[in-house]
Design a protein around this nucleic acid. Structure first.
Lengths: 120, 120
DNA sequence: TAAACACATGAACAAATATTCATATGTTTA
DNA sequence: TAAACATATGAATATTTGTTCATGTGTTTA
């Protein structure tokens, strides 16, 4: 970062005011960071596929792996990410752990994204 | 991928049926891929910050860089990603290029994400 | 038309992340 | 309680991705 970037554009006065006004309306860096992290969780094909499977039915890790034709370890690792983001939850049932969506909020977000895709 | 992952869990019949039923309801791989790619675009702090700035006002690249205290090249690279995802658009105005949101769909998606964050 | 300005872009480097492999943990069953 | 099963996890590897630097392209102005 050097002075060249800060001193930019010809019309200084109005731009500086605008920049300041916009800057003040920004949410906190923490919130923006968390938001980016949330989207990052959705931004992976494997995790999206896991979520779509869970839209239909709660399932054990093994069946998730089988449905998605991936090995169990990869699925477990991704389930951990989804769980940390509170998008899914797991409960033990005997030897298995059954995973399901945390709440319907996840559906809303994904539906919104799918809508955007289909309009493009 | 080996046979161990496919042959999983004790109760074969019901699980196999379930797995098949779920599998059939999945959207196409292409759509899932596009969806993950879309979320990936939102999943970066710099791009989220750019979008939030553009919520308030359309702006030239230079002012975006100034507002976010980043160099012009980094911003340009990220604007390219956002433009390819059709989340922002740019128009030339003299020496500058003014960027703005493509449509209000972007706001809806981000608002939904922010809601999720704040409920956690 | 040459210089200055604003932006775009390719290459290089660094950092983040997804999958695999090996193995550990927790649960049931023989 | 030992073996089998289901899942979790650390380490290693490969890939992806973000930023920087240098420079190219397009526009205006002196």
């Amino acid at each position: 970062m050097n002075i060249d970037e800060v001193e930019c554009c010809e019309v200084k006065d109005t731009h500086e005011e605008l920049v300041k006004a916009v800057h003040d309306k920004m949410p906190s860096e923490d919130k923006l960071y968390d938001l980016a992290e949330l989207f990052k969780v959705f931004g992976d094909l494997t995790r999206i596929r896991i979520l779509y499977v869970l839209f239909e039915s709660e399932l054990c890790v093994c069946d998730l792996a089988s449905t998605l034709d991936m090995n169990q370890s990869a699925i477990s690792h991704q389930l951990k990410v989804l769980k940390q983001a509170k998008l899914v939850k797991g409960r033990r049932e005997g030897k298995s752990v059954i995973y399901s969506l945390s709440d319907d909020h996840v559906r809303t977000m994904i539906a919104q994204g799918m809508e955007h895709i289909e309009e493009m």
